[in-house]
Write a protein that binds this DNA or RNA. Structure first.
Length: 566
RNA sequence: UGGGGAUUAGUGUAACGGUAGCACGACUGACUCUGGAUCAGUUAGUCAAGGUUCGAAUCCUUGAUCCCCAGCCA
């Protein structure tokens, strides 16, 4: 990890520091425990960053664990996808890749201990009855009629449940806690349910599957996790997490570890959605092209778009760790991408919306090579040769026939610089029958070769350009905000997604003209198109037809000026 | 109406009884062979009301607002 250490200790790092200092833990162990039932998104990236970042910072160990306790919702294909995404973000789990389902035997043994100790019982109530008897937020629940079965009877029933004697939903194992607790999670929570379903990792070995609350603390304990860092939604579950571990240790002679659960807040980003449910709606509804659509804040989407994992980590570090559910402006996220990409991305000239320029006084058929700097922020990146010839393309936006006051670029009679090349002066704008400009007739000053005038005269603008004969045709996909709405918290419960999607979230440009240096690149290659933004080669590219995704634009002061004058 | 959390400029985040700081955004200006980058500056804040104290964002009391919890999901 290249990111600097945080200078301030957040409340979690403070506790870890204290635990280390007090000798409560010798070595920090954290974990990221996704359920393999979907793709990871930027919210997960925060959890990964916190868990991995803390393990790394304190010289500890980080585990990646599939929390696969529900065979009805999980699929093996997600396991590989999750590993790829976590690795891409830069979190290294070393040898510690685990499946919760590998601990099923151990969990069962411990459940038996709890039953023997009279701390758990088999309940024959139907799901509806259980729900009804749980009470409400403001009224207590009532005890199950099966609550006082003897340990022997419970043990017998539990073994038969495990053996497959009973139908799905007919019985559950419940912890005997307190049906009147103001915390709903403590009203005799279900520990095991019967599910005659094949498990992606364990096959048909089990028909009894543990619930999250029962399983999670055990998974952590088995792996020797010291700090179980999770989402703030689990704050209400912490008493239960602790109850199970304590109950086990009261019921047994040999104690098991008791990891510490600490919760942090998730966050929202403006102009996008980060919940698994909403992302699913967008994908299923065909509003985006898939889970890796570059408009999506999924890890796969961000990777394809060209966002840099280093910058994602810088962002995570900057937003910090707190218990406040924040809504962060997308602009802050983009800032860290620009900051990183500015330092590392090679520059290249690419004309998005080409306008042909003919240099009338430049010899026909001649081509010369001009030296261009690969990255002004990084001298080590060196230079390259860019071909120049009589016919060029410039950006259509860089010419105005009747320019307003603050427009510095090309206009009839005006002189500008072509980057790394020559000063040119526009002599005439050629129009078609509709009156749209189709070509510019210009002249150049041979004395300005390389971009400087020997007489010291200045020019107010420098334009990017591409030699027509040497240009590589490409496709560019320009992305804008996914949602027109700023705050995703304002979305209705059942949004009309078609109306929510920003109509400018995607613009596809064909016939983009690139200088030769940008051609033949592998998918994932990042660069800056000078004056336009950072781009990344899309996997849809073919050998002769590259496709570039615009990761993020450059800051654009001219755009602001335009907006203000309107 | 039960329980658990939270609240500092537009957005985030520091300040652990002693000058409310930083970043992003917005706005000025300088510089520039990217209207990029860089540099300088401006803008704007302690949820409210009481109390304790020489001194309160911080401690106490009361209130407001927002989030989470009634899956055999995680």
């Amino acid at each position: 990890m290249t990111t600097e250490e945080p200078k301030k200790l957040d409340f979690i790092r403070q506790q870890v520091t204290d635990d280390l200092a007090a000798g409560r833990v010798e070595r920090v162990v954290t974990r990221f425990p996704p359920e393999p039932n979907g793709y990871l998104h930027i919210g997960h990236a925060k959890a990964i960053w916190i868990n991995y970042g803390i393990a790394e910072q304190f010289g500890g160990v980080f585990h990646l664990r599939m929390d696969d306790t529900n065979p009805m919702k999980e699929e093996a294909e997600f396991v590989e996808a999750i590993k790829q995404d976590v690795a891409w973000l830069g979190a290294d789990w070393g040898e510690n890749f685990h499946y919760a389902s590998d601990y099923f035997e151990r969990m069962y043994e411990l459940a038996v201990d709890l039953v023997r100790a009279g701390k758990a019982y088999v309940d024959d109530q139907t799901p509806d009855e259980i729900r009804a008897n749980r009470g409400t937020l403001t009224s207590p629940g009532v005890d199950s009629p099966y609550r006082d079965r003897t340990p022997d009877e419970n043990l017998d029933l539990l073994e038969r449940m495990k053996a497959g004697e009973f139908a799905d939903g007919s019985r559950v194992l419940r912890a005997k806690i307190d049906m009147t607790s103001p915390n709903m999670n403590l009203r005799d929570p279900v520990m095991y349910r019967i599910l005659h379903a094949a498990h992606p990792h364990r096959g048909d070995a089990w028909c009894l599957y543990p619930m999250y609350d029962w399983a999670h603390g055990l998974e952590d304990a088995v792996e020797g996790v010291t700090h179980s860092l999770c989402d703030i939604d689990f704050e209400n579950h912490r008493p239960l997490y602790d109850w199970f571990l304590d109950a086990i240790n009261e019921a047994r002679d040999e104690p098991i570890d008791h990891p510490k659960q600490i919760e942090f807040a998730r966050f929202n980003l403006t102009h996008t959605v980060t919940s698994k449910r909403r992302l699913r709606q967008l994908v299923a509804g065909g509003h985006v092209t898939g889970w890796d659509d570059p408009r999506l804040p999924t890890i796969r989407g961000m990777r394809r778009r060209g966002y840099a994992p280093e910058a994602i980590r810088d962002f995570m570090q900057h937003i910090g760790v707190s218990k406040f559910v924040s809504t962060i402006e997308l602009a802050l996220f983009e800032h860290f991408q620009r900051q990183h990409l500015n330092k590392v991305a090679p520059r290249v000239m690419g004309v998005l919306r080409p306008l042909k320029v003919v240099i009338e006084n430049y010899p026909e058929g001649r081509t010369e090579q001009l030296e261009a700097i690969n990255n002004p922020e990084d001298p080590a990146a060196g230079t390259r040769q860019v071909p120049f010839s009589r016919e060029l393309y410039i950006e259509r936006d860089d010419f105005m026939e009747d320019p307003p006051r603050k427009f510095f670029r090309l206009a009839p009679g005006r002189e500008v610089r072509l980057r790394y090349a020559y000063f040119i002066t526009c002599r005439e704008a050629v129009k078609d029958a509709d009156g749209t400009v189709v070509e510019l007739r210009c002249t150049y000053d041979p004395a300005t070769r390389g971009g400087d005038a020997p007489d010291g005269r200045k020019v107010k603008a420098t334009l990017h350009w591409v030699s027509a004969a040497d240009a590589v045709d490409a496709e560019a996909r320009l992305y804008g905000h996914l949602l027109a709405r700023e705050n995703p918290g304002d979305l209705p419960d059942e949004p009309d997604w078609a109306a929510e999607i920003n109509p400018d979230s995607l613009a596809v440009l064909h016939g983009v003209k690139l200088e030769p240096a940008a051609a033949g690149r592998e998918p994932g290659w990042r660069c800056q198109f000078e004056r336009k933004g950072y781009f990344c080669v899309d996997p849809d590219s073919t050998a002769d037809a590259p496709v570039f995704n615009r990761t993020v634009t450059l800051r654009d002061t001219w755009k602001k000026i335009q907006k203000k004058s309107r």
